[in-house]
């Protein structure tokens, strides 16, 4: 497998700062804002956005985590159970603006599952989607509102996001899988 470094730690940090500003600008402030990260890597990104917004707005925005394992559309096809973790939604989402956060947007199926999972907690006024990487190849009509970086990829490639919180470093790689050399 060969990999190409797409974003280093500095670029990830700058991208997250821009996303945080965009979210607040789009929401006309922080009123009614709740940030919810998809487990696993969307959650640390959501926490970072919460910290950044607190830095420049002086407001603590509720940040939660969402596990989509019970809502996947391939539960019966995988032959193995998806590992589950408890979700944690820290505030009432009824009438709120919920920003879902994920690391990579690809087919859109995870986000479809996340919407179902989120709506089990209440009825938000609106749901927005923020993603660090949009790699294309959507299979469902889902569109992000806040994008860190668009990366055109081939289906045989993989995008790997590494985060300090989960992997010890901040980096985004595009990996060419073995199939691409065949």
């Amino acid at each position: 497998m060969t990999g190409e470094l797409l974003l280093g730690p500095g670029e990830v940090a700058r991208t997250m700062r821009r996303l945080a500003h965009e979210i607040v600008e789009n929401n006309h402030g922080t009123d009614g804002l709740i940030i919810v990260g998809l487990l696993t890597r969307g959650h640390p990104l959501a926490l970072r956005l919460g910290r950044l917004i607190n830095e420049f707005e002086g407001v603590e925005v509720p940040v939660g985590s969402l596990d989509i394992g019970l809502y996947r559309d391939d539960v019966a096809r995988r032959g193995q159970p998806t590992p589950l973790r408890p979700s944690s939604i820290p505030a009432n989402i009824d009438g709120a603006t919920v920003v879902l956060v994920d690391d990579v947007l690809f087919t859109g199926r995870s986000i479809r599952a996340a919407l179902d999972a989120l709506l089990d907690f209440g009825r938000p006024a609106r749901v927005r989607l923020a993603t660090l990487i949009d790699r294309g190849h959507r299979e469902l009509p889902i569109r992000p509102d806040f994008v860190g970086k668009n990366i055109p990829t081939a289906l045989i490639q993989e995008v790997q996001v590494l985060l300090k919180e989960t992997d010890g470093e901040d980096a985004v790689y595009v990996l060419n899988t073995e199939a691409s050399h065949a």
Partner: peptide, 17 residues
Amino acid sequence: LDVQERPAAGAVEAPAW
């Protein structure tokens, strides 16, 4: 393909049943 959306970095072995 959806599996690739969250690649397993590091050596976290998925528990199996």
